[in-house]
Structures are given as C-alpha cells and as structure tokens.
C-alpha cells in the first residue's frame, strides 16, 4: 500500500491543456475510481501515475518520495487490451515478473528457480481461476479470462499500487460482475492502492472507496484545448470497506 499525493499538477500538450490545478491526497489502501466523460484526462492522469509521462507543472509523490519517472515494478497495470503477451502461454505470462527479477541477463529462469516460479504462478492462476488453462495461449482465452490473466501477471511482482485503465470495458455484464468480486478480493488480500479508470459510473460506485470525477470547469467554444479538466467531485463511498483497509496506525489514533 502506498499513499499518493498530487500537488498543483498541470498537464499540457502543445495547443492543449489536458489537466489543470489537480490537488489530491490519496490514503494508502484506497480504491479510487476515476470517472468522467471521454477526453477528460482520466487516462492521462493514469499515465502520469504510471510514470509514462511527466507533468508539465506540479508533482506527484508516493509515500513522500517523488514518483519514479518511468514505469517500474512498484506500480502494476492492467489495460483494456494488449496487457498480456501473445507469444507466451498463460503460465509463461505469469512467471515473467519472477523471471525478469531473477535473471538480469536472459530474463529466463532454469532448474529449481524456474520450478519455484512456476509453483508461485500456479498459486496465482488458482487464485484467479485459470489453473485449468495454464498451457493455453492468450488468443485461445475469452476476454474475461485474458483480463484475469493480466491481473495475475501484474500481481506476482507484488505492486503496492495497481493501475487499471478500463479493464472491464470490453466484457459482458455477467463476466464483469465476476471480475468485480475478484478485484475486490485481491485488493483486500494484497493491500494495494488501486486507481481504476472507468466509463461506468455504477461500476465506480460499486467498487471504489473514493470516486474522483474529472470534468472541464471552463469551456472555450472557439478553442476547446484552452482549458483542461480537473477533479470536480471527490466522493468517499463504501466507507466501512475503506475503514477495513486503513493502516492500523490510523485506527489507533
């Protein structure tokens, strides 16, 4: 779990302001849903958290330290698509995190180290319900199974922050409900801080402990890029769930 704080953040591209004056304090273990209309900078904000892009102004700190300016194992991610590697089987996808850490030169483990990684990966596959499909390629899985695989793959390196970019946007409602259950369970068990971009307000309110609405406050009809979006609503929801996740220190205080 990591606490994230955002101070006076601006994100500008040439001729376009995407985000303006973003201020945010996120407690460790929060589950944040980022909602709002398309093109309002939700995904840009996620990319900033990921370290894929740098803010034009302002700063993001994680547990008081400036955010590392490139993606790394502290922050896991699941995208809507292309989150798993098509040339590796389900099992091979999950052990990747262990292989990268254990073999700097080849990125591949052998012998006892590989068996240990496989055992750990099998635990994760069991956990997300993919144990029976360990030797299939991602293209042979359904959309929901691919997303479960992407989650297992991300979690094996124990990220303290998990970033989700519309992870369930392409799934049917039944599968989506199953995924919600799985995600909530993993969030509790792994004690992560979660940021999830979603178009679905209901999804946001069901899952999150905090819903952040992105919207443009000012609109210049002749120059749509002139003003950026900011957080217009910051709602605390599902508070009993949030209390469970609060660090013990805060409870005793």
């Amino acid at each position: 779990m990591s606490a994230v704080s955002v101070r006076d953040l601006w994100m500008e591209y040439p001729n376009q302001v995407v985000l303006e004056r973003l201020n945010l304090e996120i407690a460790a273990g929060s589950f944040c849903a980022l909602v709002g209309p398309s093109g309002c900078g939700k995904t840009t904000f996620l990319r900033l958290l990921l370290g894929e892009e740098r803010p034009t102004r302002g700063a993001i700190t994680v547990d008081g330290q400036p955010l590392v300016a490139e993606p790394g194992p502290g922050r896991g991610v699941v995208f809507q698509r292309y989150s798993v590697f098509p040339h590796r089987t389900v099992l091979e996808n999950v052990i990747m995190g262990r292989e990268f850490a254990g073999s700097r030169l080849l990125g591949r483990l052998f012998g006892a180290a590989r068996r240990a990684a496989i055992e750990e990966a099998e635990g994760w596959l069991e956990c997300v319900g993919l144990a029976a499909h360990r030797d299939k390629y991602p293209a042979e899985l359904s959309g929901g199974m691919q997303q479960r695989l992407a989650i297992a793959q991300a979690l094996i390196v124990k990220p303290r922050i998990l970033l989700l970019d519309e992870p369930f946007g392409a799934l049917d409602p039944g599968t989506r409900a199953q995924m919600h259950e799985l995600l909530l369970r993993l969030w509790r068990e792994e004690r992560m801080t979660v940021f999830m971009v979603t178009h679905d307000l209901k999804e946001g309110f069901t899952l999150a402990t905090r819903v952040l609405a992105f919207e443009k406050l000012r609109i210049d009809p002749t120059d749509p890029g002139r003003f950026g979006a900011t957080i217009t609503y910051d709602l605390k929801v599902n508070e009993e769930r949030a209390a469970e996740m609060a660090p013990p220190l805060a409870l005793s205080a």
Partner: peptide
C-alpha cells in the same frame, strides 16, 4: 501497452 506492462513487471530494456 505491452512495452509498458513489461516495464511494470521489472524488465530492463535488454530483457
């Protein structure tokens, strides 16, 4: 997405 994902799994450029 694939390149970002690999980085979040701890991969170096060479890996």
């Amino acid at each position: 997405e694939q390149l970002i994902k690999a980085q979040t799994l701890g991969a170096s450029s060479w890996q």
